[in-house]
Amino acid sequence: MSTPRPRNVTMRDIAEQLGVSIKTVSNVVNDRPNVGPLTRVRVQEAIRVLNYRPQVGAQQMRTGTSGLITLAIPSLAGTYFSELAQAFADEAQRRRRSIMLHSTAGGREEEHSVLAGFTRVLGDGVVFNPLLIGEDRLAHLGRTILPTVFIGEHVEEAGLPAGSDYVRTDNRGAAHEATAHLQALGRRRIAYLGALDSSEAQQAHSTSRLRLDGYDRALKAAGGVSPVIQTVPGWNQEGGLEAVRTLLQEHPEVDAIVCGNDDLARGALLGLRGMGIDVPGQVSVIGHDNILEAPFTSPPLTTIDPDKRNLAATVLDLLLERIGGHDGPPRVVEAPYRLVERGSTAARR
């Protein structure tokens, strides 16, 4: 004989136990001011002891909002996106909201489903980082199903649909600055490790393409320096480890490496150490993303910090304004970044 599942605690249960009205309990749950301090403490203690959890569906029917925000990102496998998701979760919690993660790793059709509001509309708004969706699809959308803020650098600003905003990241400018940093240290044979041979990478607004373009522009600005471009099997530590060995075998003259992201840079550092190449004495290495492990690599990794927490805060501010009723034209905000110099780069000896 199966044991029946315990019934969820309701606001009525708390009200009956304390001898107060359901409205009073609701006011405490929703942090409304019209409750006496002693009563508020009693209700909060009962909520804790009875492990009461508000039901999202009931809240949405009562208030018109669910308190949920969907974060649709390409994957949680990479370090950057997992840290970005945590930054959004932390910032949402400060605003008394919850983040619902949705991976679009399924590809273009999965991204189309985000624009179509999924099979069912869940949450009050969407933060969406598209990779593969065509810009013409956005331009002809007219209006997003839910209030939406796009992030990344895969969106054409002129084609933003109504009901949305865009917080862009200047990947091209950041890679240019990373390369210029190495040039200022006297490095002259600078390679780019991170080119991808894939349909995603061929798009004009793909991250890998933009960072490669920023590197190339910095070389051209210096004059007379040919690029050295190393493809990788993937933007991960294993890809960096494999690619740096090939790079140095084919181009032993390389004295600095701009990596597409920090995971690649971590793999490159490991590979260089295995080949007995001193970093930064012989080869300087710079990454991108300032992941949590960056200060703890050997040597500590110089990198571009896109300030994930600032990005999350900016995005949520815009989105909550949309959810609250703002219906102005699409807004475009450029997220700041900075170069964090650590031990993996140094002046040429």
Rank of each mutant, 00 (worst) to 15 (best):
V114T: 04
G234M: 05
A313Q: 12
H205T: 14
S199I: 11
Q249I: 07
R349M: 09
A195F: 08
D124N: 06
L212W: 11
L71C: 02
V56G: 00
L115V: 07
N310H: 15
R187D: 03
H140V: 13
S344A: 08
G125D: 06
R120A: 13
L212V: 02
A256L: 03
E109D: 15
A180C: 12
Q55P: 01
P6H: 08
S2H: 14
A222V: 06
A89Y: 07
S98Q: 14
E16P: 01
T24E: 02
L18I: 09
N51V: 06
F81C: 06
G260F: 06
G36P: 00
N8F: 10
S103K: 04
L339P: 02
L272T: 03
L219C: 04
D216R: 15
R338L: 06
V225E: 09
L248S: 07
T246G: 15
A85G: 07
A58C: 02
A87T: 06
V254H: 00
R273L: 12
R94D: 06
M275D: 12
S113W: 09
L292Q: 12
G240H: 11
G134I: 05
L319W: 13
T302Y: 11
T345D: 07
S75A: 10
L212S: 05
A335E: 01
Q17T: 10
E45W: 03
A218F: 05
Q86H: 14
V228N: 05
K220N: 08
G271V: 11
G325P: 11
P54F: 08
P37L: 09
D90G: 01
D90S: 13
S98A: 14
P130F: 13
S226C: 07
A158V: 09
H154G: 03
L160R: 00
A58S: 11
